[in-house]
Design a binder for these strands. Structure first.
Length: 383
RNA sequence: GCGCAGGUGGCAGAGCGGUCAAUUGCACCUGGCUGUAGACCAGGCGCCCUUUGGGCUACGGGGGUUCGAAUCCCUCCCUGCGCA
């Protein structure tokens, strides 16, 4: 993997770069489309191309649990397997430590409520992290137990082994993603473990054609974050992931992203894990984030939320019953150029399969386009 | 015309003397979704009052039995099936 910064903003930490891997080169900042199980739900590779996607992120945990990672290796790697002619990444499974553990135990939203309200914070004993009924975290690794009894064990070595079999261009080190409600004491403990796992991941890695990003943890505390940045950036990673608990509020999250990126070596790419509402995009980029992934555009699309310039609309609402305009006037996406809100309203209500595709196409196009516009502005020196 | 079965909230369909303003599903309305165990989840859904609460109108129409009926009886209307 090669990463070259081609433009730098004068007024912020924003930068434009070129990221090159065996499967092509892309410009950053770039939005990474999530395709957890080697598929972006409801879309094919031609759709992805049309929508401006340049990178797809799959998940180690899911492909391992599905017992297909060896098949992916035989198929010639993730890219060939899913016939995606572009860059690929795999997440290490570390996030599932959180989403299948703490958040599941405490029913925090259904997965990763990033910013729990105060009422929720009071209800949850932060130390309960250690008592999950779904997962067991040890220094050696993590044991996941599904409701049906199925056991999945993931260790740093195992995660790397699977990620090498899957064969994405960029892989992530296996981390323990803690809850934003975890205590400082526990967060420190988990962070230490994440650092030890990071070393083991590098140790276990054998393929030269894959890049590996190390993940910064340390919760919301400056001193821990500082320590995590120092530890992870001290290891020979090709890039970095900003992960996990980034404070209890949005404001704090941006402070932390800022804090981390100021301390990370400038020349290596930074990936902000799991953040990507349209309104987050400019903020992330201004703080020096190069790539970021998010399930929101696709998930929200499937759930009927479509992005527009002034926010978002719920297409199944009665008010769109006779709205013959496109989702967004002036949008060049396939959906907007060919279909009306009325039609989408109808498809959404009837749960027609076409809806999921058309809605996902629009939200992804919207997201990618938003990133592209900012990228162009950085190049023109406007940001 | 006779026999049998049945008429319950927008629809389907429970309830079969009090704990029923009425289970449940669908539909509808409101929210939510940020490294995807998510094409999902949560709440609301007769009317009125500020509520944990209270009042009113409701289970085809009318009448009755009972302290009390969606639930029992009579009658009328309507629907399905069988026989004419």
């Amino acid at each position: 993997m090669k990463f070259i910064i081609t433009h730098k903003s004068k007024s912020s930490m924003a930068r434009v770069g070129v990221l090159e891997t065996a499967h092509g080169r892309i410009e950053t900042p770039a939005f990474v489309t999530v395709g957890t199980k080697a598929s972006v739900k409801s879309l094919g590779p031609d759709d992805l191309e049309m929508v401006g996607t340049s990178v797809v992120l799959a998940n180690t945990y899911h492909l391992y649990a599905a017992k297909t990672y060896d098949v992916i290796r035989k198929a010639g790697g993730l890219s060939r397997f899913m016939n995606w002619n572009g860059i690929t990444m795999t997440d290490s499974g570390g996030f599932q430590v959180f989403s299948l553990g703490f958040s599941k135990d405490h029913d925090i939203g259904r997965s990763s409520t990033l910013f729990p309200g105060e009422d929720l914070q009071k209800m949850v004993r932060a130390e309960a992290v250690k008592e999950s009924q779904y997962i067991k975290i040890m220094d050696e690794g993590v044991v996941f137990r599904m409701p049906d009894g199925t056991r999945t064990v993931l260790t740093p070595e195992k995660s790397i082994q699977i990620q090498e079999a899957i064969g994405a261009d960029i892989i992530f080190s296996f981390d323990e993603c803690t809850s934003p409600l975890a205590s400082k004491e526990y967060s420190a403990e988990a962070m230490g473990r994440t650092h030890r796992w990071a070393e083991r991941c590098l140790e276990a890695k054998t393929r030269e054609d894959q890049a590996i990003f190390g993940i910064i943890q340390g919760g919301e505390w400056d001193d821990l974050k500082e320590e995590s940045v120092r530890a992870i950036s001290g290891m020979p990673f090709d890039g970095f992931g900003l992960g996990g608990a980034l404070g209890k509020t949005k404001e704090r999250m941006w402070e932390l992203v800022d804090f981390i990126n100021k301390r990370l070596p400038e020349e290596k790419p930074r990936h902000l894990l799991g953040v990507g509402y349209p309104e987050d995009i400019p903020k992330a980029i201004r703080r020096g984030v190069d790539t970021f992934d998010c399930v929101a555009p696709t998930r929200e699309a499937r759930n009927g939320t479509l992005y527009v310039k002034n926010g978002r609309i719920s297409i199944q609402k009665a008010e769109y019953r006779e709205d013959f305009s496109p989702i967004e006037e002036g949008c060049d996406c396939y959906t907007c150029k060919n279909f009306t809100r009325t039609y989408l309203w109808h498809l959404a209500r009837e749960k027609e399969l076409l809806f999921y595709r058309l809605a996902s196409i629009h939200n992804l196009y919207f997201t990618n386009n938003c990133v592209r516009e900012i990228r162009e502005r950085i190049k023109r020196g406007e940001v």
